[in-house]
C-alpha cells in the first residue's frame, strides 16, 4: 500500500510538472509565423547543390545583397570549387578583377587600390560596421554563414525528430520566407517572418530586379529561392563532400558492425552468459 502511494505520488508530480510546462507553451502572441519547409536539392543524405541555382543565386547576391552586406569570410576563388557554383577559372579570374581591393602598405608606405584576385575574400561594401551604421542606420549582418546563423523553433517533438529526418535547412527556409515576407504594401520595413516584424532592411528585391540568362523566371520567389541556396553554400561550402564522405563512412561502419557482431557471436558461443 505504502509502495503504491509512493509510486503514484512520483508519477503525479511528474505529470503535474509537465502539464505546467504545456500551459506555458500555449501561446505567444508576438511569435512570428513558422517558415514553410521548401524542397532543396541539398537536403537529405544524398543532397547536392544545384550548380545553375548557385550561379543564379550568386548573381542576386552580387547585384542586390552585396550593395549593403559583407561576405568577408568567403574567398572569391571558392566560386570555382567542386560542390559550389563551379564557375570556370577564367570566369572567376575575370569576376575577381571587377572588384577593387584595398591593399598595402607598399614600399613607400602608402595603401593602394588594386584589381581583385581570386585569392581575395569578397570585399565589403563598407570600410567598417560603423560606416555601414552611419549610412544605413544599422549594420547589415555579414552573409558568410548567415544560413547557419538563422533558425526558427520547431517545437516539441519536431526539434528532436529533425535529427532523424536530417532536416538541416532551417536557415535557408527562414531566409526564403523573410525575402517573401514583405507583405505590407504601405510599410517596406514590415516583415511577417522577422521576430517583432520591424526589420531594418527595407524590401530589398522585387520581381524583375535581376536579369536571368538561363530562362528561369525573374520573380521574387525565384530570386529568394536561388539566393537562399547560394547562402547555404557560402555557409556550408563542404556540404556535398560531407554527405558523400558520410555515405562511405556509414557503409564502412555497417559492414564492420556486421563482421564484429558475428565474430563476437562465434567467440561467445561456448560461454554461458
Amino acid at each position: 500500500m505504502v509502495r503504491t502511494t509512493k509510486i503514484s505520488l512520483a508519477v503525479a508530480a511528474l505529470a503535474g510538472a509537465l502539464s505546467f510546462s504545456s500551459i506555458a507553451m500555449a501561446a505567444d502572441p508576438h511569435a512570428a509565423p513558422t517558415p514553410d519547409r521548401q524542397s532543396w536539392t541539398f537536403g537529405g543524405p544524398f543532397g547536392k547543390f544545384d550548380q545553375a541555382q548557385l550561379q543564379r543565386g550568386f548573381k542576386v547576391y552580387r547585384e542586390v545583397c552585396a550593395n549593403c552586406h559583407s561576405m568577408s569570410r568567403v574567398a572569391i576563388r571558392t566560386l570555382a570549387d567542386e560542390g559550389g557554383p563551379q564557375f570556370s577559372d577564367a570566369q572567376v579570374k575575370a569576376l575577381a578583377a571587377e572588384y577593387k581591393v584595398k591593399d598595402g602598405p607598399n614600399d613607400s608606405g602608402e595603401m593602394f587600390e588594386r584589381a581583385g584576385r581570386p585569392s581575395d575574400k569578397f570585399p565589403s561594401p563598407f570600410a567598417n560596421p560603423e560606416a555601414a551604421r552611419a549610412s544605413l542606420g544599422a549594420a547589415p549582418p555579414d552573409l558568410s554563414v548567415i544560413a547557419k546563423a538563422r533558425s526558427y523553433s520547431r517545437g516539441f517533438p519536431m526539434f528532436l525528430l529533425d535529427a532523424v529526418i536530417q532536416y538541416q535547412e532551417h536557415g535557408a527556409d527562414y531566409i526564403y520566407a523573410l525575402l517573401n515576407g514583405y507583405t505590407d504594401a504601405n510599410d517596406p520595413n514590415w516583415n511577417a517572418y522577422f521576430p517583432g516584424h520591424k526589420i531594418g532592411m527595407a524590401k530589398p528585391i522585387d520581381n524583375g530586379a535581376v536579369e536571368y540568362t538561363d530562362g528561369s523566371p525573374a520573380t521574387l520567389q525565384q530570386y529568394a529561392k536561388d539566393v537562399s541556396a547560394f547562402l547555404m553554400w557560402t555557409a556550408e561550402p563542404k556540404l556535398e563532400e560531407r554527405k558523400k564522405t558520410g555515405l562511405r563512412v556509414m557503409i564502412f561502419l555497417l559492414i564492420l558492425a556486421g563482421l564484429v557482431y558475428f565474430t563476437k557471436k562465434k567467440v561467445w558461443a561456448n560461454v554461458q552468459h
Partner: peptide, 15 residues
Amino acid sequence: SWFIFYTPNFLGHAD
C-alpha cells in the same frame, strides 16, 4: 557519424 556527416549543427545553436 550520423551527427558528424548528416546533422552536424543539430546539437549546436544557430546564434
